[in-house]
């Protein structure tokens, strides 16, 4: 079997702010690892077999890899923009494929049914046409001009608005969402989904945000995101089959699912198959 190309990618393995010298035991793609601060207060990741793994610290998280990453972690220029509040949400453990967690994040059609009265509400269920492309130069999946009516788009929103979204998939288990920013028209709030693959059917989801919101208390911002992801968890843990099918099979995609179709195609093209099912069952 061909080695999965996902082995050489960067993955989040913890919040840097929560590290200490005692370390944190976790796992990456089935391997036990330990994430700790060394004597110089730098993050250090060790594999169960004793190897020291590659490390970088970015967007509040420690990132590592079991293989040899060929390039730097993807850029989020907004992370360095002055005036944004950076929110470490923390991990949510989900018994699902890491790829399914990302695909669900890219889907807006479920908002009225799963995030009722927060991110969506009947009868505003229509998904208008949007644009999807695989950007060749950056090698990323992008969905733009995504619009959806939301009763409570953010913690800072006081009423229903039509929100505009852009989605970006810069790595197989990471997605960056750009979303209309109510207090600052012309700017985008950034909400990311960083997924740590623990096993093919188990992951820790690490949401992270870079927002223009000087008002809402930090605990409320975190609680709002946790509420959303716990609603998603009840869906993700019941999906069948557990692994993400990359070949067309039983499912019937509609126009609303074009981001998911592009994501699956991009995964397959790169042989990113950890958490995927190749032959339709």
């Amino acid at each position: 079997m061909m080695q999965d190309a996902m082995i050489d990618e960067w993955y989040p393995v913890g919040l840097f702010s929560q590290l200490d010298v005692k370390g944190r035991k976790t796992a990456l793609m089935g391997e036990p690892i330990e994430v700790a601060l060394d004597a110089e207060r730098r993050a250090r990741v060790t594999c169960g077999d004793g190897r020291t793994l590659p490390v970088c610290v970015r967007y509040g998280h420690v990132w590592s890899s079991l293989g040899k990453p060929q390039k730097d972690l993807f850029a989020i220029p907004e992370a360095d923009q002055p005036g944004r509040r950076l929110v470490d949400v923390g991990a949510i453990r989900v018994r699902c494929s890491p790829l399914r967690a990302v695909e669900n994040f890219l889907d807006i059609a479920h908002f009225p049914f799963v995030h009722t009265d927060i991110l969506g509400a009947e009868p505003h269920t229509e998904v208008q046409d949007y644009k999807v492309e695989i950007r060749q130069k950056e090698d990323e999946v992008w969905a733009t001009q995504v619009k959806f009516y939301q009763p409570k788009a953010a913690k800072s929103a006081s009423g229903g608005i039509t929100t505009e979204y852009m989605y970006r998939v810069p790595a197989p288990t990471c997605s960056v969402l750009y979303k209309t920013c109510p207090p600052r028209p012309g700017e985008w709030d950034v909400i990311t989904l960083f997924v740590q693959p623990l096993a093919e059917d188990l992951c820790d989801v690490w949401p992270w945000m870079a927002l223009f919101d000087d008002v809402t208390p930090m605990t409320d911002l975190i609680h709002f995101q946790q509420t959303i992801f716990l609603q998603d968890r009840s869906i993700l843990e019941n999906q069948i089959p557990r692994l993400l099918p990359l070949d067309p099979g039983m499912e019937i995609p509609t126009r609303a699912d074009l981001t998911s179709v592009a994501y699956r195609r991009w995964l397959k093209r790169h042989n990113y198959t950890y958490g995927a099912q190749l032959v339709a069952q």
Partner: peptide, 24 residues
């Protein structure tokens, strides 16, 4: 109706409505 995307089905099993595309 399905809890995920709200597709609804009649007694005979045919799909009645796809909420993401109400005109379809």
């Amino acid at each position: 109706s399905c809890i995920y995307h709200g597709w609804s089905y009649a007694r005979s099993g045919n799909c009645l409505r796809i909420p993401a595309h109400p005109g379809l």
